[in-house]
């Protein structure tokens, strides 16, 4: 079996008397995009934060890129995090600080460079590459906080790609976007994944957000894995159907998925 880039075994996370996560086994294969779906409060973000070492499980092991996350501290944990590209669910709060788009994307290089070193030509080339690739070059000199939500989301993705990560951890990267921007970002995620071949764990609520590149979905419910498989099978299974209700059905077309009113099959 190919070694997984991310592997959870018997992971339980408790806060007080509440069990937030109880995952028997979960693997992310190299080059795979895995969708992590489920209702609000299912434990999706907790799982992602556990992979980053921000949440400590009470039992179980989490191995990321061959390293046991729970055993890492300080510099060793920071070194592993440099190899992970994390895009958070929420955009950073608005600040008066006039950071430009280029500065925000260049931040992706910060941890790689180390203390006292300034970004050099190679770093600028990587930043330019991702500004171009994501269509942000014209916005490079603009203030980040003056951009629209969709543009800011793209900048966050460019920032994380400039980090040159080995795994992407995407926490609802299309949250609060209108349909047009959501579709742009889904297409961008799909393209980036196909071009880079990076393993990615994508947390999302809605089937519409799953890019065609996402061929496997894990459905979390109350912290436990309720279903695993192709998007078509998982979204037709009981847990998802319970969430979407009797009056809704999931349509599948050319690798995309959508919830629509109605009872028949697509």
């Amino acid at each position: 079996m190919t070694p997984a880039v991310l592997e959870l075994r018997g992971v339980r996370v408790r806060v007080g008397r509440h069990e937030l996560l109880d995952v028997g086994e979960l693997r992310l294969a190299p080059g795979e995009m895995l969708g992590l779906m489920g209702p609000n409060g299912a434990g999706k973000t907790t799982l992602l934060r556990a992979c980053l070492g921000e949440v400590r499980p009470s039992t179980g092991t989490i191995r990321v890129l061959g390293q046991e996350v729970t055993a890492l501290r300080g510099a060793a944990r920071a070194a592993l995090r440099r190899r992970l590209g994390y895009v958070p669910q929420l955009l950073p709060p608005r600040s008066e600080l006039p950071l430009t788009v280029r500065e925000v994307v260049t931040m992706g290089r910060t941890a790689r460079l180390g203390w006292g070193r300034r970004p050099g030509r190679e770093d600028r080339e990587v930043v330019d590459f991702w500004l171009d690739r994501l269509g942000l070059r014209a916005l490079a000199g603009r203030r980040f906080h003056e951009l629209s939500g969709g543009e800011q989301r793209k900048v966050m993705l460019a920032r994380v790609m400039a980090q040159e990560p080995e795994v992407l951890l995407l926490d609802e990267p299309t949250a609060n976007l209108d349909l047009g921007w959501r579709e742009q970002l889904v297409a961008t995620l799909d393209r980036v994944h196909r071009q880079t071949g990076l393993a990615a764990l994508l947390v999302c609520h809605e089937p519409e957000v799953l890019p065609p590149a996402c061929q496997r979905v894990v459905w979390l419910e109350a912290g436990r894995i309720a279903a695993v498989g192709s998007p078509e099978s998982v979204l037709s299974a009981d847990p998802a159907q319970r969430l979407y209700g009797a009056g809704l059905q999931v349509l599948h077309c050319q690798g995309r998925h959508a919830v629509v009113p109605g009872g028949g099959d697509a």
Partner: peptide, 13 residues
């Protein structure tokens, strides 16, 4: 300044 959470998550101390 941009985001302390993101800075930590990207391996900055």
């Amino acid at each position: 300044l941009f985001s302390r959470e993101l800075a930590e998550a990207s391996g900055i101390r």
